[in-house]
Design a protein around this nucleic acid. Structure first.
Length: 591
RNA sequence: GGCCCCGUGGCGCAACUGAAUAGCGCAUCAGAUUUCGGCUCUGAGGGUUACAGGUUUGAAUCCUGUCGGGGUCACCA
């Protein structure tokens, strides 16, 4: 049983026997380093019920606890803080229990009571993925893993924006300038090839505008009348009408992009249980709007457009259907949300989308609620900040976009250089080495991005790039590898029960840190924040390194201590692995 | 302009959601291996938590205002 539960009960008993008062909750915190003790009760919080001097009350409760609770060895009171020293035996027993628990802290999805869907990535098919997508993918994937670890069944999904005028632009440019180039003929990744034609379209479009303006057309008119744009719009209509050549070209080029994306997703180590395609869903939602009209949730203006009035909620009026009867963005989102709850037995849905869409999702969730869907309260927008460069925002026109594939390649290259200098890779063949460089390079990238609170902006400096020292993925991976090295050398029965031993402070700290892993996973799931796991793991590793530096493990004279310290090392390694697994980061046996 | 998010040592991040003297990494300086992997560890300097009020026994955290940064207010997605 957790010590806090024991103490909590005992403090409540103390309150009723000593003061004849009832206490609801007891507040605990870890005792600060500069004071004696292991766990601290905040007496201040009890004063609202137990009137009086905090130090006197603390002393009375302290005396009671030493008498009544076997685990409490001694106490001291500083101001309103009651610091308790807990017996070593409690920690060794607690450690023995968690040591023997496989996948400690990780819930099995089989016990899932709730299923959730997490949407992330959701790219357009006219451009390659960049650094912003990388953050999105890493966040979405990690949150999925964290939710799973917290005991929920998770469905990962994305919606691919595979239709619309932007797609037609690259199609048209390829038709005009492409000379039948293919990924095969050029050796380019499909998404890169298609992206190039999107850029080519833009270039041709601008030239036409300039010509028109030179001929006397206003800039505004020129933007609308440029022939290549009108051609693209015509192509979109043909696509909607199902014209076979257009549809065939669309399929061909989108497939190139999907193949390219797959490569990037594999490199990032993310995946999906189901893909939705906008080409299948863009007509959804109209019937929802019609039903809502009947219910009086929406209203129609004279021109036929349909709106919702959210001014009572402090928001604006929002259009949900155009005057010509076609959908807007939010119409589709209404439709797809409802469809997903039909497709899957889920009771919650999380969207991983940048914070520039905060308002959109607020409105979306509110509308669903007004339409009377019971699950509308369980919708989450996993909103994250932009990834900025020192020069400001990434802009494709100015060529300041950090390409995802190039970034990954650079990270892996850096890992390779470092490993060749410092690595212990005797006996690894080339493909094993290559896999290791991937593990380290991606570990650095993923940790760098995930350790930051999602809602904060990240400033990414390509020149300084990403550290491999300090609070970084490779630092943690290194500690893991070192533990594995120790375990390989242990030539005795590691699983043996531990004899009576005296714990050092460093060992006790490590056990305390291991004890809070399960609640850390739950907290991260509740907040949908991988940063919580990242920071926890870092703290654990720091504690371990400090312990490692000051204590012999295999070289320890005392047999019981030797076994205990090896067990401790093993468990720390396992928790590093579990924690990193929820971040989507691998750990190496050697590096 | 309305609404939303952010502001913590030179830089990058924490602070268990209101508790003790605000922690850590990078960088700087000084130390530590006849020992299990030095991508390590120990220590030092560096802060009025943007500013001003307020609530509270207690505020980086909650409330109000000001300043600064970003986002958003399309019959775009």
């Amino acid at each position: 049983m957790h010590i806090q539960n024991i103490l909590s009960t005992a403090v409540k008993q103390a309150a009723s026997t000593l003061f004849e008062k009832e206490i609801e909750t007891v507040e605990f915190q870890a005792t600060k380093k500069e004071f004696d003790g292991d766990i601290t009760i905040v007496v201040f919080a009890l004063l609202k019920v137990l009137r009086g001097n905090p130090e006197a009350i603390g002393t009375q409760i302290g005396n009671y606890l030493v008498e009544a609770v076997a685990e409490v060895e001694s106490f001291n009171v500083v101001k309103g803080f009651l610091n308790l020293s807990i017996a070593d035996r409690y920690y060794t027993e607690s450690f023995a229990a968690l040591f023997n628990t496989a996948d400690y802290g990780i819930c099995s999805p089989i016990v899932a009571e709730q299923a959730v869907m997490v949407e992330y990535s959701s790219p357009n098919t006219n451009k390659p993925l960049h650094l912003g997508h990388v953050r999105n993918n890493l966040l979405g994937f990690s949150v999925s893993k964290i939710l799973e670890a917290s005991g929920k069944k998770v469905y990962k999904t994305q919606i691919i924006n595979d239709r619309g005028i932007h797609i037609c632009k690259s199609m048209l440019a390829w038709q005009k300038f492409g000379q039948n180039e293919t990924p095969k003929s050029t050796g380019l990744k499909g998404d890169k090839l298609v992206g190039n034609y999107y850029v080519a379209f833009d270039k041709a479009y601008k030239e036409e505008i300039n010509k028109l303006v030179a001929a006397g057309t206003s800039e505004e008119e020129a933007k609308k009348q440029a022939p290549i744009l009108m051609e693209a719009q015509k192509m979109l209509l043909q696509w909607e009408a199902g014209k076979p050549e257009v549809v065939a070209l669309w399929k061909k080029m989108n497939q190139w992009v999907y193949d390219g994306f797959d490569t990037t997703y594999k490199a990032l180590g993310v995946n999906f249980d189901k893909n939705y395609f906008e080409s299948n869903t863009y007509l959804l939602g109209k019937d929802v709007v019609n039903n809502g009209l009947k219910k009086g949730v929406f209203y129609k203006k004279d021109d036929g457009s349909v709106w919702i009035d959210l001014t009572d909620e402090g928001l604006d009026e929002k259009i949900v259907l155009r005057s010509d009867g076609t959908s807007v963005y939010i119409t589709q989102d209404l439709g797809t949300a409802i469809e997903r709850f039909r497709d899957f037995d889920i009771d919650s849905l999380t969207y991983t989308v940048g914070n520039e869409q905060d308002y959109h999702f607020k409105v979306l969730f509110l509308i669903l609620k007004k339409l009377g869907f019971s699950w509308a309260d369980n919708m989450h927008h996993l909103s994250y900040g932009m990834v900025d460069l020192p020069s400001g925002k990434m802009k494709s026109r100015e060529g300041t976009v950090v390409d995802a594939d190039e970034l990954i390649a650079e990270m892996v290259q850096t890992a390779k250089e470092l490993s060749q200098e410092l690595g212990k890779l005797e006996g690894y063949n080339d493909s094993e080495k290559e896999a290791l460089y991937q593990t380290i390079g991606l570990g650095a990238l993923k940790y760098y991005i995930l350790k930051v609170d999602p809602k904060k902006r990240i400033l990414f400096d390509p020149k300084e790039s990403i550290d491999f020292n300090g609070n970084t993925g490779p630092f943690i991976q290194y500690t893991y590898a070192r533990i594995q090295s120790i375990l390989r050398k242990a030539d005795f029965d590691i699983a043996k029960p531990i004899a009576e031993i005296t714990l050092s402070n460093k060992e006790k700290n490590l056990i305390k840190q291991l004890q809070i892993f399960p609640e850390t996973v739950q907290l991260a799931a509740k907040n949908q924040s991988p940063a919580i796991i990242a920071n926890y793991t870092y703290d654990l590793v720091k504690d371990y390194n400090s312990f490692y530096q000051s204590s012999y493990i295999l070289g320890c004279e005392d047999e019981g201590l030797k076994i205990f310290r090896t067990q401790l090392s093993k468990k720390v390694g396992e928790i590093i692995k579990s924690g990193f697994n929820t971040l989507g980061i691998h750990v190496p046996e050697r590096m």
